[in-house]
Computed example of a mutant assay.
Amino acid sequence: MDQIPIIYQQWLRAIKERNDTNAYAELYQYCWKDLYQHAARRILDSQDVEDILQELFVQFWEKRHTIDIQMNLPAYLKGMLKYKIIDFFNSNKAKDKLLDHWSKHIFDYVQHHPEELETYLMLEKMLEDELEIMPHNMRQVLLLKWEHLSIREIALRMGLSEQTVKNNLTEASKRLKKAIIGYQNVQDGSFTLLLIFILEELSR
């Protein structure tokens, strides 16, 4: 996005004052790639990235009559994107992805041990509750780690030190283990041990 600002101003004026869809399309085409690359460094699923950018540009169009023609367009769009990404990681969609990683590792076990289904459903609800109350960075570290990113990759994506990532991951695992063991009716069960083993494997 190194084009001279006057072109940004021309696009913004046309969009704001004349509802110019051609100018909007030019702006979209020019800015989309850089925003996509920026988001893709933080969100793994390309469809999620595309959905976020679609929402961003729809919102930009809807607010066109209030935009500042003199603004720094690239900085403005990246600011919008930043909050879209935060919303994504705080959303149920992101949480569901994390639950999917949990679920797929115990699906076979539950199939062969149907008597554990009720326990599984209870523990899945427990996991949802624990994720809900985790600090944002801690939850996001788990999400990225369970997407098989390395500690270094997570640190780069989140702008944190590698030690901070490790600390968040360790604390998150401790919280989940404590919550699992806290259910008295599964305290001594093999299913509980399996879940703790999965947590340890996914956290390495």
Rank of each mutant, 00 (worst) to 15 (best):
A94C: 11
M126P: 00
E115M: 09
E130P: 00
N137S: 10
T192G: 00
K174R: 13
V141L: 08
L98F: 06
H112Y: 14
L160E: 09
K104W: 07
A94D: 00
T192E: 08
N167F: 02
L123E: 07
K97D: 06
R152I: 01
K174I: 08
K104M: 07
Q187L: 13
I181V: 11
S190R: 07
L121G: 04
H101M: 13
F89H: 14
R157V: 03
L143Y: 10
K177R: 14
M138G: 00
K95T: 00
Y120H: 13
L142P: 01
L156F: 12
V186C: 10
F197H: 13
E171R: 10
H136E: 13
D188I: 08
L195Q: 06
Q111N: 14
H101G: 10
S173D: 04
Y120Q: 11
I196F: 07
L193H: 04
K174E: 09
Q140N: 12
E132Q: 10
L176T: 14
D100C: 06
L99W: 00
M158I: 03
K125M: 07
L195Y: 02
T170S: 02
N168T: 07
I151Y: 10
S103A: 15
P135Q: 04
D108H: 11
G189T: 10
K95L: 04
R157C: 05
F89V: 12
I154K: 12
A179V: 13
E132S: 03
K97A: 01
E147Y: 05
